[in-house]
């Protein structure tokens, strides 16, 4: 076993610096690396490029880094529900690159899998394809999209072990497994770090080879963005 365990979030984020590019897992506020984000706020690193499907809300998730003006550029598919984001975007303080969600996912997976680029039909004929190479396959037009490159990937899983193996829960999986191994260093925070041998190898979602550092998060708020319920009849 190659031990990936670090003792706390501070150790997990050692080496992060200004001007770096980060990948952050999560969809909305579901499955976001809450502990890593808090530590990035504490460290105050800035001029960051963040690749994340969404940009959090005003006072939670990546919204906390935005409030602190630590982000230079945001690469996302959907950035609504965030007033500070809107203000910085409209004033030109924040650079924004909008990417179709499936393309964003695949650009992470391609980086993980060692593909430099791939063709996708998404965005053909739209402004997303402007300036990009297009090519016809089987009578249909496709756009060439390069893989992402990042310094750190911050992901959140439900359970993990010291070997870095991860299991996700529900829709908190989303982009997290795709970002593992897609950056120079992948930092995984888990709700529960279990002893080696406790996780069934048949049930592992992400093998530990894709993870460099793992720690049990001190606290997970797991905020719900849209609480929708039905009445008992």
């Amino acid at each position: 076993m190659i031990n990936k365990k670090v003792n706390n979030v501070k150790e997990a984020l050692s080496g992060v610096a200004n001007n770096m590019t980060f990948m952050l897992g999560g969809f909305g506020l579901c499955g976001i690396p809450e502990n890593a984000i808090s530590e990035l706020v504490r460290l105050g690193v800035d001029n960051l490029t963040c690749i994340s499907n969404n940009a959090g809300v005003d006072n939670f998730g990546l919204g906390l880094l935005l409030q602190n003006k630590q982000i230079k550029k945001m690469i996302s598919s959907y950035v609504g529900e965030n007033d500070e984001f809107e203000r910085q975007m409209l004033s030109g303080e924040l650079e924004v690159e909008l990417t179709p969600q499936g393309t964003l996912a695949e650009k992470c997976r391609a980086a993980q899998a060692g593909f430099p680029a791939f063709y996708t039909p998404a965005g053909y004929g739209t402004e997303v394809a402007e300036g990009k190479e297009v090519r016809e396959f089987n009578g249909k037009m496709h756009v060439l999209e390069p893989a992402y490159r990042a310094d750190y990937a911050f992901v959140k899983a439900w359970k993990g072990d010291e070997a870095g193996n991860l299991i996700f829960k529900g829709t908190a999986r989303n982009f997290n497994p795709l970002m593992c191994g897609a950056a120079s260093i992948t930092v995984a925070e888990v709700e529960e770090l279990v002893p080696l041998g406790e996780l069934d190898p048949n049930q592992i979602h992400t093998p530990g080879i894709f993870v460099q550092r793992i720690f049990q998060g001190e606290k997970f708020e797991k905020r719900i963005e849209q609480r929708t319920v039905r009445q008992r009849s």
Binding site: G31, G170, R173, L178, R227
Partner: peptide, 29 residues
């Protein structure tokens, strides 16, 4: 139902939802 919301189970509109028998979860790719 009220009280049974799970922060880890949402739809693309970020609303809390439930699963049907036979449901599955997977990554975005």
């Amino acid at each position: 139902f009220e009280g049974e919301e799970d922060a880890d189970i949402i739809n693309a509109g970020k609303q809390t939802i439930t699963t049907m028998p036979g449901a599955s979860f997977f990554d975005s790719a």
